[in-house]
Measured scan of single mutants.
Amino acid sequence: GNAVQEIMIPASKAGLVIGKGGETIKQLQERAGVKMVMIQDGPQNTGADKPLRITGDPYKVQQAKEMVLELIRD
């Protein structure tokens, strides 16, 4: 079955996860074999953390989460 996890991405790092024209998030999805969606909560909310929703095989979702956390670590 499918697992769904959401991680909060600091607004300052959201661009890093998505990448230029969505390149990075696309590569992450391909590498991890999961679906990732950045939940954009309207323009008034630009400074707030953005939830990144990861959907897929539970094991792969976990892997994907680690990859993203690695990416946004300072």
Rank of each mutant, 00 (worst) to 15 (best):
V34K: 00
M8V: 03
Q62L: 08
L69A: 12
P43T: 06
S12T: 13
V37Y: 09
R73W: 11
G56W: 00
P58D: 14
E70V: 03
V37L: 11
A64C: 06
Y59E: 14
E23R: 15
T24R: 12
R31I: 06
A48G: 13
I7K: 01
I72Y: 03
K26F: 05
E66W: 04
G47Q: 11
I18M: 08
R31Q: 14
E6A: 06
K35H: 13
G33N: 09
V37C: 14
M67L: 09
Q5P: 01
I39Y: 07
T24L: 06
D57S: 08
Y59L: 14
V61A: 04
G15A: 05
I72D: 02
K13W: 03
V34R: 00
P58V: 11
K60W: 03
A48W: 05
E6M: 08
V4M: 15
V4K: 14
A11R: 06
P10Y: 00
K13T: 04
E70G: 10
M38P: 03
R73E: 15
Y59V: 11
L52S: 00
R31N: 08
Y59I: 15
P10A: 02
G22R: 06
G19M: 02
P51I: 07
A64F: 01
G42A: 11
L16D: 09
K35E: 13
Q62I: 07
N2I: 15
G47D: 10
V17T: 02
E66H: 04
M36R: 01
A11G: 06
V4F: 15
A11K: 12
Q40D: 13
I7M: 15
Q29W: 03
I18A: 15
K60A: 10
D49N: 10
A11I: 07
V4Q: 14
M67N: 08
G22F: 05
M8G: 05
E66L: 07
Q63M: 11
V34Y: 00
K60V: 02
R53K: 11
S12N: 13
V17A: 02
V61G: 01
Q63K: 13
A64I: 02
V34Q: 00
L52V: 05
Q27K: 14
A11V: 08
S12W: 05
V37A: 09
T55G: 03
E30I: 11
R73C: 13
M8T: 06
G15P: 05
R31C: 07
G56K: 00
Q5L: 11
E23C: 12
G21R: 13
A11N: 14
G42E: 13
L16C: 05
I9R: 00
E30Y: 06
K50P: 04
M36A: 04
L69M: 15
K26R: 12
I7G: 00
E23T: 15
G19F: 02
Q29V: 03
I18E: 11
P58K: 12
N2C: 15
D57Q: 12
M67C: 04
A32V: 09
I54G: 00
I25G: 01
E6W: 07
V68S: 02
N2H: 03
G42Q: 11
T46L: 10
A3L: 15
I54M: 08
Q44T: 14
P10M: 01
T24I: 06
L28C: 02
P43Y: 13
Q29F: 01
N45E: 11
D74I: 05
S12D: 13
T24G: 13
D41Q: 13
M67T: 06
N45C: 12
D57F: 03
D74L: 03
Q27W: 09
R31L: 05
D74K: 04
M67I: 05
M36T: 01
A14G: 04
I25T: 03
I25M: 14
A11Y: 07
I72C: 15
Q62C: 10
G22N: 07
G22L: 05
G22H: 05
V17Y: 02
Q63Y: 11
V37S: 10
A14E: 12
P51L: 09
P43C: 10
I54Y: 00
K35A: 06
K26V: 05
A14D: 06
V61F: 01
K20C: 05
V4L: 09
I72E: 03
E23Q: 12
R73I: 05
P43V: 12
L69P: 03
Q27P: 02
G56R: 00
P58G: 10
G33W: 01
Q62E: 14
E6D: 06
G21E: 09
R73P: 04
Q5R: 14
E6Q: 14
N2V: 15
K65D: 02
L52W: 01
A48L: 11
D41T: 09
D41A: 08
Y59Q: 14
K65N: 05
L16N: 06
T24K: 13
S12V: 09
V34M: 01
P58A: 12
L28S: 01
K50N: 08
N2K: 15
T55K: 04
P43G: 15
G22T: 03
G47T: 12
R73N: 13
E23W: 07
E30K: 12
R73S: 15
A11Q: 08
Q5H: 06
L28N: 02
G33Y: 02
D57L: 06
K60M: 06
D74T: 08
M38N: 02
T55S: 09
G47Y: 05
G1T: 14
T46Y: 06
E66C: 06
I7D: 00
M67F: 06
V17L: 13
N45S: 09
A3G: 09
I54E: 00
V68C: 04
S12Y: 05
E30T: 08
K60Q: 10
G33K: 07
I18H: 12
V17H: 01
A32F: 15
G21Y: 08
I25V: 05
N2G: 15
Q27V: 07
P58N: 05
P58Y: 11
K35D: 08
G19R: 02
Q27C: 08
T24E: 07
I7E: 01
L71D: 02
E66M: 08
L16V: 14
R73K: 14
G15W: 13
G21H: 12
S12Q: 08
Q40M: 07
E66N: 10
L52Q: 00
G21N: 15
A48R: 12
Q40G: 11
D57A: 12
K26P: 02
S12R: 11
P10C: 01
L52K: 00
K60T: 03
R31D: 11
L69N: 14
I54L: 08
G21K: 14
I18L: 13
K35M: 05
I72N: 02
R73V: 10
A11P: 14
P10I: 00
E30W: 07
L28W: 03
Q27R: 12
Q5E: 15
V4C: 08
R73T: 15
V34H: 00
E23D: 10
E30C: 13
L28D: 01
I9N: 01
L16P: 02
T55E: 07
E6K: 05
K20A: 14
L69H: 08
T55A: 06
V17S: 02
V34W: 00
D74F: 03
R53D: 01
L69F: 08
A3W: 15
L71M: 11
V68D: 03
G1M: 15
D74M: 04
T24Q: 12
I18R: 06
K35S: 06
Q62F: 06
T24A: 08
M38H: 05
D49W: 06
Q40P: 09
Q5I: 14
L28V: 05
G47L: 08
I72T: 08
R73F: 04
A14P: 01
A48H: 10
A48D: 15
I72V: 14
K65F: 03
E66A: 07
R31A: 10
E66F: 04
Q27Y: 05
E30L: 11
K50Y: 14
Y59G: 14
R73Q: 15
V61W: 00
T24W: 04
G47P: 06
I9G: 00
K35F: 03
Y59S: 13
N45K: 13
L71C: 10
Q63L: 13
G42T: 11
Q29C: 04
K50G: 04
